[in-house]
Design a protein around this nucleic acid. Structure first.
Length: 522
RNA sequence: GAGCCGGUAGCUCAGUCGGUAGAGCAACGGACUUUUAAUCCGUAGGUCCUGGGUUCGAUUCCCAGCCGGCUCACCA
């Protein structure tokens, strides 16, 4: 395990310590390089070519009947040495840059004795610059014939490269050995990224998704804003916060658990469409769907209701799916999922009525509690109807929501910030989007009546007093903002990490967060 | 928080029914001027997660702990 290695090997800067052989050997090479007057840590390199596009360009020109000069693909490549095969007076290296790999051929005759002897001081993981020209080897591989070699950055610690083989049948890359230990991969993401191109691709896809969402919202006239991470009161969701302290102000502040209440303040202020892609923080358990800090998209649109927002969410989802690549079809947890709109709509109460065989709004609370306990949901002491219905929904309905489904019209107690449903005051105009049994989005017609909002906050305060630690706090400043006047507004929250998981087929949130939260090592 | 599984060389892993451990790759030395999981010959590399217990002897058995994974609970 790498964790054990660290205490002894972390201090590479002090040669002479009892370092593992591999590090020692590299330090010796470093010394040899300096002795020869070669700077092992260069300042810059003028890159004119990249691996994959240059090979593509070569193959394209090869087909053309142009004259020799125009067909040449020459220049300077830079990358990391990801493979090395030495044959005495010639050698092959795999050079990997951000676009992929290209093979380099070093021949003593064309490189010269001096440069060629430098190869002996190279290691896997070194950054090198190569000047040369593409050609095709006897076995048909497009390869750089190196005319000059420059060391750009010496690698002192061995990267756990696996050997990559191309399956002749499918053409797929098979990696042997490699870097698989999940703990080490998360703790040393830099090494994980360096040796696992598939991991790099997941995070590129993540950025493509986020960029596409930004463009989508920008094009609809939404204004991207930034609201406080440090908040005097936390609200907008039900969760335990991280608590911190500002010394100069001598006051307690909370890391936000949501940005909802601030964004709606901005609608009060007259921005009619706003959004924020924010890091939110919830001081709760960690599992493969939860990380203490995670990325949330919230957007609010004046004059819209939750029906309007369902349409926006459908379009946003398909935009994101296209950005991730791979069309609308997805395999998640071994299940086929189709993200093509329109998504199914399922009333919360109807779904539960069917599962329970009774009307969830009329059934006595003790009956609901008994049914919930039957389902093995323990600790429902003091739980009100809302919490019980939510629990029952989670047990009976939610697991079956595999294809994208908007669950609509939630009970009022569950939704203190949502507007009452037209014609059914016990419900709210709220929807959640479920895919593969997981909640991806949460939205409502926002409650814009300050008097009703105060009453909801007071209901929450009562729940809180009754022992519900997740009930929300009264936010007087938010009420004041509503008193100035909030237009009818539709609002949506989308968990970006979970969306990326779905769209890239990753089964753990840690595989879509570059540096996930872990316990302290050692 | 509970249950199960795991932690052995730089990496991926095997193994020891209790007698201080192996392979492949990586590394080091050598051969090889079109290889591609290069090949061939040789060398070196270990606090077997940590602490305690049992034992003549523990990497192995027992207990506790640490870290990770999975499942469940919690996180609407």
């Amino acid at each position: 395990m790498l964790g054990r290695l660290c205490p002894r090997t972390a201090r590479v800067a002090h040669p002479g310590e009892d370092l593992p052989r591999v590090l020692k050997a590299r330090l010796e090479k470093l010394a040899a390089l300096k002795e020869r007057g070669i700077e092992p840590f260069a300042y810059s390199f003028d890159v004119t070519r990249h691996a994959t596009p240059s090979v593509a360009a070569f193959e394209e020109r090869e087909g053309e009947a142009a004259d020799g000069e125009r067909r040449r693909v020459a220049g300077r490549w830079a990358g990391r040495v990801a493979g090395f095969r030495s044959h005495g007076r010639s050698a092959f290296a795999d050079l990997e840059d951000h676009t992929g790999r290209v093979q380099v051929y070093f021949k003593r005759d064309s490189l010269g004795e001096d440069s060629y002897s430098l190869l002996a001081l190279l290691d896997l993981g070194d950054w090198i610059g190569v000047e040369g020209e593409l050609f095709r080897t006897r076995t048909g591989q497009v390869t750089i014939l190196a005319k000059d070699l420059r060391l750009l950055g010496k690698s002192l610690r061995p990267l756990p490269f696996g050997k990559v083989e191309t399956d002749p049948g499918t053409g797929r890359a098979i990696t042997h050995s490699g870097f698989a230990d999940r703990e080490s991969r998360y703790r040393q993401r830099y090494a994980d990224l360096a040796v696992n191109p598939g991991v790099r691709e997941v995070f590129r896809a993540r950025t493509r998704i986020v960029t596409a969402i930004r463009r989508f919202l920008d094009d609809l006239g939404f204004l991207e804003v930034e609201t406080p991470v440090l908040q005097p009161l936390y609200g907008g969701a039900s969760a335990r916060p991280f608590v911190t302290r500002h010394l100069a102000l001598n006051r307690t502040l909370y890391l936000r658990i949501a940005d909802e209440l601030y964004l709606k303040r901005l609608i009060v202020g007259g921005f009619d469409r706003v959004y924020e892609i924010s890091k939110d923080f919830r001081n709760e358990g960690i599992d493969r769907f939860h990380n203490p800090e995670f990325t949330m998209l919230e957007f609010y649109q004046a004059f819209a209701d939750y029906e309007d927002m369902m349409g926006v969410v459908e379009r946003l989802m398909t935009t994101a799916a296209q950005a991730a690549g791979g069309g609308f079809g997805r395999t998640f947890h071994g299940v086929e999922i189709t993200l093509a709109p329109p998504f199914r709509r399922l009333p919360f109460v109807d779904s539960l009525a069917e599962a329970l065989g009774t009307d969830p709004l009329d059934a006595p609370v003790n009956v609901l509690r008994a049914r919930a306990e039957e389902q093995g949901a323990g600790d429902l002491e003091g739980a009100g109807r809302g919490k019980l219905l939510d629990r029952l929904f989670g047990e009976l309905v939610r697991p079956g929501l595999v294809q994208p489904t908007f669950v609509v019209d939630y009970p009022k107690e569950l939704s203190p910030l949502a507007k009452a449903k037209r014609g059914e005051p016990r419900l709210t105009e709220r929807f959640e989007l479920f895919v593969a049994g997981e909640e991806l989005a949460n939205a409502f017609s926002e409650l814009n009546d300050p008097i009703a909002q105060r009453a909801r906050f007071e209901d929450q305060a009562a729940l809180r007093a009754a022992g519900d630690a997740e009930a929300q706090m009264v936010d007087e400043d938010y009420i004041r903002a509503l008193e100035y006047g909030l237009p009818p507004t539709g609002g949506v929250g989308i968990g970006i990490d979970r969306l990326v998981m779905l769209l890239t087929g990753q089964t753990s949130i840690r595989d879509v967060i570059l540096f996930p939260t872990l316990r302290e090592a050692e």
